[in-house]
Design a protein around this nucleic acid. Structure first.
Lengths: 208, 208
DNA sequence: TAGCTAATTATACGCTTGCATAATTACGAA
DNA sequence: TTCGTAATTATGCAAGCGTATAATTAGCTA
């Protein structure tokens, strides 16, 4: 008679997030191929079958992991912006600074994001999550942009186009910061981002 | 007695590039995991064993495909810029337009780029390649930027910072164009890019 | 025309994968 | 305290993977 592995029952939310965390860790370390059902289960301290109990398919688990990651990044970019005084320019500047500085610019996060981007074109669930998180970030940015422009008496701008460009700028800086952290002095990207936004918007954003 | 599949002998270069093309096509259509040895062989019109004859390992084939693609991308971004009249603004505008339009903005290019980005943080060789191609592109861009600024009598700008920002902007737009092609109207990104550059540089770049 | 050799096909092996399903057990409810 | 049930483990399967190796054949050379 062989002894069965002992286990504890844990709340559903705890288990789901443990599985998601394990998935993110594995992808960050070894790319998407490393995140096999068995490896995820081991990392999460459970057996593979349990994954099936919480996620109908592995695809579903990976999509959930991606959503968790991206939502976390957006929140980290928001940082303490909500606590700032009600100055649209200062708030926008703070948001920009957060988005291109640690902990948002994290090697692990960029690697994870890159891994996800591989799946986006092919996987409908991933594409849906990517679209919604992308638009979520961009919409937040667009709101701040139009607030800032309005506060300067310029409310006739094409904020959609501006938001697309600004979002792309932040994305690009974020990727390079994560991929080549040694190429940029500490704070250099923040300064570059603020200056670029100032010129893009023809606004004088505060550097600190 | 079963009949063996008839075949033709073809030059080595032809076979290699056929296999590389098949690999790129498959990744474009179904992501990296769709590019199996068997699928690649079928697409290239040969049997799987032949791959082993030209590439010691599948990894080697994928690396060759990656190099082929990236080389082609750089060339496509340059496009016909060299044939243009010697107007720095027009040349810069053409370069920008190319970088955010088909065929540069291609799903398979973005997917492959993402695949390599994910290796960059933990693979020294990939990091070196990424750094050199990144800097190569950025340096080319910086040259065009300073040419354009000088032609407008503004040669005191911090072109390094500008190039970093402009490069990030192009990268971000390029990625989104490849990841979410349906989110942007045809030519929209080109127009957005030109306008954004115009404001970033305080130059009036031609839209066509 | 004959023969040699490299290009190509054919076959098979060992692993890993995701997923289904059956067996068990922890733990709250009664 | 007992019991029911949902959470968890255990087992297995079918398919697909990359790769190794043997068998064939196309096409050049002499």
């Amino acid at each position: 008679m062989t002894t069965r592995r002992p286990f504890q029952r844990v709340g559903e939310e705890t288990r789901r997030s443990a599985l998601i965390e394990a998935t993110l860790d594995l992808i960050a370390e070894g790319g998407p191929q490393a995140a096999t059902v068995r490896a995820i289960a081991t990392r999460a301290g459970v057996t593979p079958g349990l994954i099936r109990h919480y996620f109908a398919t592995k695809e579903e688990l990976v999509a959930a992991a991606h959503e968790t990651l991206m939502t976390g990044l957006t929140e980290a970019s928001m940082g303490n912006v909500d606590d700032l005084p009600d100055d649209p320019l200062a708030r926008l500047a703070a948001f920009i600074g957060n988005a291109v500085s640690p902990p948002v610019t994290d090697t692990r996060a960029v690697a994870l994001w890159a891994a996800s981007m591989q799946l986006v074109p092919r996987d409908a669930a991933m594409r849906a999550v990517h679209l919604s998180t992308y638009l979520g970030f961009r919409d937040r940015l667009e709101t701040m942009l139009s607030d800032a422009l309005r506060s300067a008496g310029r409310d006739t701008e094409d904020t959609r186009s501006l938001a697309i460009a600004c979002n792309a700028l932040l994305d690009g800086l974020w990727v390079e910061a994560g991929a080549l952290p040694d190429q940029f002095a500490s704070g250099e990207l923040r300064s570059i981002a603020i200056k670029a936004f100032s010129r893009l918007l023809s606004l004088d954003l505060p550097e600190v």
